[in-house]
């Protein structure tokens, strides 16, 4: 592995973390949207709220991390991507603002009307934001971002079959992950009826995601042949791993082993992302700019690696502490409706 590849790989770890943690976070918002009327959905919303309140901010810093590593180590490619795709990126950023602000402030208001309005903003932006981010991935993966500042088409680069597929898949994957994660959270809080509901949803979204994924292969064959070749060629083992892990997760959900189902689902999603990376290798911007061409000078890359290593030493224990503290201290209120 070259130095540039190592830096890119570290960035990719951040991207996977964002996909998993941020994804589950978005997905929780999607279930909030679909939880039903104010009264009927109240307990589900409460569980969702409990599950993400202490971690939602940290979950989203992963994205910042991805951005800053890209702009420092792959400055030119970064500039090309964000300028060509500035529309979905701006919309995604607005979505994140709406989502964060609505989630944060919903709790601090008590008038029903305000809470409903903020709840709606939270839920809709949870749906829209992953769609836009997925369409950005679709745009990059299908080679619609040429090198150079704003050199691509600002509309068709992200309004096209592969981007639509990317967006829809992103939404589904988020919803699926959240449902699986919430099963275990609901069980920890002792709310068996909620466990049943989220289990059914997890199984349902898994089926839909699988179907869309399969159909997607045909879309890719027609719309992004290079990516299709990569996925069915070099990346085939990773894609197979993803399918196997996905099927295993289904089995674990079926047999109600939610902890293990979490791990299997996370593996399946990670494998999808890694599959994309392997299929696209060695290009950063398909089919023009390779990793080596896009990388900046050596001393910056070295400085990056030092910083990333030292940062990880501080960051990882802190994150673990946050999640442990949070998991260790069940609040129990979800089990008592009306509390």
């Amino acid at each position: 592995m070259t130095l540039a590849e190592v830096v890119l790989a570290v960035m990719f770890v951040g991207l996977v973390a964002y996909g998993l943690f941020g994804g589950a976070d978005f997905g929780a918002g999607i279930w909030d949207l679909l939880a039903g009327g104010t009264r009927r959905g109240a307990r589900q919303r409460e569980l969702i709220e409990h599950s993400i309140a202490p971690v939602w901010e940290a979950n989203h810093v992963w994205l910042i991390f991805v951005l800053v590593v890209l702009w420092t180590a792959f400055s030119g490619a970064f500039a090309a991507v964000v300028t060509t795709l500035y529309v979905p990126l701006t919309l995604a950023a607005f979505g994140m603002i709406a989502r964060g602000a609505a989630f944060a402030f919903r709790k601090s208001t008590t008038t029903l009307g305000m809470r409903r309005a903020l709840g709606a903003a939270f839920a809709f932006s949870s749906l829209a934001t992953p769609y836009f981010l997925g369409s950005v991935v679709g745009a990059v993966a299908s080679g619609r971002v040429p090198a150079g500042i704003a050199a691509g088409d600002v509309v068709t680069s992200w309004v096209n079959p592969t981007s639509a597929l990317g967006g829809v898949l992103a939404v589904l994957v988020c919803a699926y992950l959240a449902a699986v994660f919430l099963c275990a959270d609901a069980r920890r809080e002792g709310a068996e009826d909620l466990v049943r509901q989220f289990r059914a949803r997890a199984l349902g979204t898994a089926a839909v995601t699988g179907a869309v994924g399969l159909a997607g292969l045909f879309v890719l064959r027609a719309d992004a042949p290079l990516l299709f070749d990569g996925l069915t060629g070099r990346a085939a083992p990773v894609v197979v791993l993803s399918v196997v892990a996905g099927v295993a997760a289904l089995g674990l959900l079926w047999t109600r082993r939610y902890g293990a189902a979490r791990a299997a689902s996370a593996l399946a999603v990670t494998a999808i992302l890694v599959g994309w990376a392997v299929a696209q290798y060695p290009y950063v911007l398909v089919p023009e700019v390779t990793i080596e061409e896009a990388a900046v000078g050596r001393s910056t890359l070295v400085a990056m690696l030092v910083a990333l290593g030292a940062g990880a030493v501080v960051l990882v224990p802190s994150l673990v502490y946050l999640y442990v503290l949070f998991q260790r201290a069940p609040t129990g209120t979800a089990a008592h409706p009306g509390s």
Binding site: V68, W71, T72, F78, A80, T83, A93, I149, V296
Partner: peptide, 30 residues
């Protein structure tokens, strides 16, 4: 979060040319 998008969306000429020099503190900031 919006700011980190804007640095690239609005000022690509800055990031493209000098990102490798002055992007680094932003990584540590992250």
């Amino acid at each position: 979060t919006l700011l980190s998008f804007e640095m690239g969306i609005l000022w690509p000429g800055l990031m493209d040319r000098f990102g490798e020099v002055y992007g680094f503190p932003f990584v540590l900031e992250g």
